[in-house]
Every structure is written in structure tokens, then in C-alpha cells.
Nucleic acid binder design. Structure first.
Length: 123
DNA sequence: GCACTGACGCGGG
DNA sequence: TCCCGCGCCAGTG
């Protein structure tokens, strides 16, 4: 491993703005490993990145909430998101957020800033 | 080292 | 647009 993917993932996840949702793929991309979306999911499972990570703001590419796995109750993730003003709607596939409206849309500057942070912290 | 797993994602039909 | 199959890759036993 050329760098610590999980440390990077923790930094990126903590940077997801209040009231926004990010995707696994997006986190992996910002960490510099576009193909590691699965590792992001693995890391968030059982709070591997730490307790101060807003894991509930991370959803899959279609905006579907992952489910109960790491949360106390089945609808905990939905409640936390709604509490931040995120609209969560029911679909046959599960609870879903509108990524067009509430997705975290990164700017190029934002992406470059992360690269700089990783460089400075040597991770 | 091998096989299997999984909070995932894309491309083709 | 919706499915489905396959690719992906670190962890785990």
C-alpha cells in the first residue's frame, strides 16, 4: 500500500457538508483510489474509521441508503439525514436520497485541496 | 497462498 | 431506463 487509504477516507468523510450525502465511489475517488468503493463500505462498517465519522451521509451511486448494518435501528440513517433537512423517499429498493438535490457536488478546487492535505500529512 | 466475502459500480443488452 | 453479469480489491479464515 503506497498510502493509508483509510486515513484518507476518514478525512474525506468528515468533510462531507451538513445536509449533504456522498457516494462510496465519490469518497474513493477523492482518496485517490477510484476503484476502492467497496473498501469505503468496508471501512464504514463497524466504525473502522472512528466514532466521529458521519457514516450516515454516505450512500451508494443511486442514492440508496445501505440499511441497518452499522446503525442501532433500521431507520436510524434515514432519521439522521432527515434531521439535517435531507429529503429521504421510499422506493422498492429502500430509502433513497435525491443526489441531484442533496448530493455533495465536489468542485475541482475541493478535490485538489484534499490532495494537498494528504501530501502535507504524508498519508 | 487460496478461496470467499462484501455499506460497490459500470457497461451491455 | 431497468436488469443483470462481471469487475473490482482489501480483509478474513
Amino acid at each position: 500500500m503506497s498510502f493509508d487509504f483509510y486515513k484518507r477516507a476518514a478525512i474525506v468523510c468528515r468533510a462531507i457538508p451538513y445536509g449533504k450525502a456522498a457516494t462510496y465511489r465519490q469518497i474513493a475517488l477523492l482518496c485517490g483510489k477510484p476503484k476502492n468503493a467497496r473498501q469505503v463500505g468496508y471501512a464504514l462498517n463497524r466504525n473502522r474509521l472512528g466514532d466521529d465519522i458521519p457514516a450516515y451521509r454516505v450512500v451508494n451511486a443511486r442514492g440508496i441508503l445501505s440499511g441497518a448494518a452499522a446503525f442501532d435501528t433500521a431507520d436510524m440513517q434515514k432519521l439522521l439525514l432527515e434531521n439535517e433537512g435531507v429529503e429521504v423517499s421510499f422506493t422498492p429498493d429502500g430509502w433513497q436520497v435525491d443526489l441531484k438535490k442533496d448530493g455533495w457536488h465536489n468542485t475541482m478546487e475541493e478535490a485538489l485541496r484534499f490532495q494537498e492535505i494528504f501530501k502535507v500529512q504524508d498519508i
